[in-house]
Nucleic acid binder design. Structure first.
Lengths: 129, 129
DNA sequence: AGACTGTTATATAATATATATAACAAGCAG
DNA sequence: CTGCTTGTTATATATATTATATAACAGTCT
């Protein structure tokens, strides 16, 4: 796997794991229906505890990104979660903070949008293969 | 003050405080040089501990949003922090995650940019007065 | 002198994070 | 059937974070 954990940062390991898996799905490194390493295997690979991996997997299952089959383990869902009203609210709140912070520091609308655009394009590029 | 704390969410109180103050500065509810309530006053207003407010104030001081004078208390900095390379990295990482998540859920580039734009416009609107 | 600042120090409680170990039930391959 | 792999569940432990409670201090202002 492509997982890289930063043990120095304040962000919990399970949260880093969760984010990197979602980013992996977005850019196509993980394809729909693809099987993920078992909790024990991934835990050993990155040198952490099995329960930490399990926590990340379960959050992703509850959010709809993964499907967990007792016999086969975890795999990427064939149907991705929807843009619910609840998700939209969370997204807007997060963006409001990031934009406010950037705005205070003098970043104009165009600069911010340009960053978002390049990240979107980056994802699309990696999706080619 | 305009602070509203949600005691149900998992986001720490001091983090909510920090974010709302930055958002307040961005939209002009707090102006440069304006004095903030004392840690004791604000803590009493929103029914939390003085140290929780103090923590938020100090983080904001270290990031350059506030200036703290022992005799007068905290006030909004006259010079806002810069867009450092470090900040840019954090911003991009955060956006990469938000965009990946939204992308998986089927949101296209235009939809995401449109949300960002409307939040920027919202801030500009409130800035009028 | 008295009232107000932020600051510092201690102590405590509750929660979150991460680890370690062990055991269980289900499925599958030999 | 036996042995291996799944995720799952249960306990226990250690550490760090978050939040509160009290108290005291030094500086500033009226």
């Amino acid at each position: 796997m492509f997982i890289k954990i930063d043990f120095e940062t304040e962000m919990p390991i399970y949260e880093q794991l969760k984010r990197q898996i979602i980013e992996g799905i977005a850019k196509g490194a993980l394809k729909k229906g693809e099987q993920l390493p078992s909790v024990r295997q991934l835990a050993e690979d990155i040198g952490i505890n099995l329960h930490t991996v399990n926590k990340a997997y379960n959050i992703l299952k509850n959010e709809g990104f993964l499907t967990i089959d007792r016999r086969k383990g975890a795999m990427v869902s064939n149907l991705m979660p929807e843009i619910t009203e609840q998700y939209l609210e969370l997204l807007k709140e997060e963006l409001k903070y990031l934009i406010s912070n950037s705005y205070c520091r003098g970043m104009r609308k165009e600069g911010f949008l340009s960053i978002c655009e390049s990240i979107y394009d980056e994802i699309d590029d990696e999706k080619k293969f």
